[in-house]
């Protein structure tokens, strides 16, 4: 079975927030809850990069591990979804998640956070596919219609990819080859102020590499 993943190409992400509003739009996510966000590092400086972050649907999901009521489940596609009817809003999944994916609709004094909400890879929840209940609780179920998450489908620069992990790997690999190979094409001998040498980030090869 295809294992679904997200990948955000930091070389292409321009922090346009299209993915953020596409998700809001498609899933009717209310103010204060953000299933997806764009994080920018080195803001305003050389090496500025952005990444679109939402639930990464981990193989060994920390959220699922720590949930006191075990409301998470993994679908055949490898997606980590949860049952809001079972969720007690304790917030443990939010503590454990490396990506900060779980969101809560209320501010949580006396730990009344409300039901956890997070990116579902536009695959809805345990309710019947595309039913009114599913729509109301979890948002859109695009996967049941054979579509992919809207955030990736609407990404302005195709930085955010979503879909079968092997397909995405292929796409990304091709991009890296494109970028890397083109380094050999640099016939220009002027002094280039290379801005893409941010530490630890893969991307276009620089003069130093």
């Amino acid at each position: 079975m295809a294992r679904m993943k997200f990948y955000c190409d930091a070389e292409r992400c321009i922090e346009c927030n299209g993915c953020v509003t596409a998700c809001k739009n498609e899933n009717d996510v209310p103010w204060g809850v953000n299933r997806r966000r764009v994080v920018t590092i080195k803001d305003g400086e050389a090496g500025e990069r952005s990444l679109s972050v939402a639930c990464m649907h981990c193989s060994d999901a920390p959220c699922a591990a720590v949930c006191p009521v075990n409301c998470f489940y993994t679908t055949d596609d490898g997606l980590v979804l949860h049952d809001k009817d079972i969720c007690i809003g304790c917030g443990y999944c939010f503590y454990a998640c490396p990506f900060g994916a779980p969101q809560f609709p209320e501010d949580g004094a006396f730990a009344s956070r409300g039901k956890m909400d997070k990116c579902t890879f536009c695959a809805g929840g345990p309710e019947e596919d595309n039913s009114a209940e599913e729509r109301r609780k979890y948002g859109s179920n695009r996967l049941a219609e054979g579509k992919l998450p809207l955030c990736a489908e609407m990404c302005a620069t195709k930085a955010l990819l979503a879909g079968d992990a092997s397909v995405i790997s292929d796409i990304y690999r091709k991009r890296v080859v494109n970028r890397g190979a083109s380094v050999l094409d640099w016939g220009v001998s002027y002094q280039k102020a290379s801005l893409r040498s941010s530490k630890g980030m893969k991307g276009k090869a620089t003069m130093e590499e």
């Binding site: 009717d28 996510v29 209310p30 103010w31 204060g32 809850v33 809001k84 009817d85 079972i86 969720c87 007690i88 809003g89 609709p105 209320e106 501010d107 004094a109 006396f110 009344s112 409300g114 039901k115 909400d117 109301r136 609780k137």
Partner: peptide, 24 residues
């Protein structure tokens, strides 16, 4: 942010799911 639900509403021991389901 959202209208806060009072704690007492939350603490009612109703079927946990239905009452607390919506995030909208």
């Amino acid at each position: 942010t959202m209208t806060r639900r009072t704690f007492l509403r939350n603490s009612s021991l109703m079927a946990g799911g239905a009452a607390l389901a919506t995030t909208l």
